[in-house]
Nucleic acid binder design. Structure first.
Length: 160
DNA sequence: GCCAACGTTGGC
DNA sequence: GCCAACGTTGGC
């Protein structure tokens, strides 16, 4: 068991690039969360995300943006090797195995919601008004979620 | 496709 | 260190 307190996160991905159904199709419904190229997000992946933490899967930049499922962090931050690959679209020549600049975690699908929680719905609830995701201009692809918000959003997925 | 709100780059 | 130019994100 983990001795630390479990933390909650939200991870964004464009479904046209990698959506929750792609994750569901992965062996063991698990893969690495690669391609994060923002320092603030990197720091959270590298320093704060721990094995056993839970994360919402958020579909961004698509017709129906929203939270579509939840995942577990099964491996904490380690160097993102796609940065080392010149053929990868995530290649960064300034990152090397000796001095990695970017990090990723491994995640596993826990549940795909039968009823996704759309961005529109999230905005409708005053309980969520200071959620980072809903702050103006927010563009971070990795965001912490407070336990209260986590529980509240989960309760929405069980609504009829 | 538009555009606001960022983040990054690089000249000075 | 400043800041203009540029690139990206992401809702609409």
């Amino acid at each position: 068991m983990n001795s630390h307190d479990k933390r909650y996160w939200l991870l964004k991905s464009e479904p046209s690039v990698f959506g929750i159904d792609d994750l569901a199709a992965c062996p063991d419904q698990s893969t690495h969360w690669d391609g994060v190229r923002n320092y603030q997000a990197r720091n959270m992946l590298r320093d704060q995300m721990k094995k056993g933490d839970l994360a919402f899967f958020y579909h961004s930049n698509c017709k129906q943006p929203g939270i579509v499922g939840l995942m577990e962090i099964i491996r904490q931050g380690y160097p993102d090797h796609t940065a080392f690959d010149p053929r990868s679209k995530y290649h960064d020549p300034k990152s090397s195995p000796e001095k990695p600049r970017w990090y990723m975690v491994d995640i596993k699908l826990v549940k795909k919601f039968e009823q996704p929680v759309s961005l529109t719905e999230l905005k409708r609830h005053p309980q969520l008004e200071n959620m980072l995701l809903l702050k103006k201009g927010n563009r971070l692809s990795v965001l912490p979620i407070s336990p209260d918000h986590w529980d509240f959003i989960l309760s929405l997925t069980q609504a009829k």
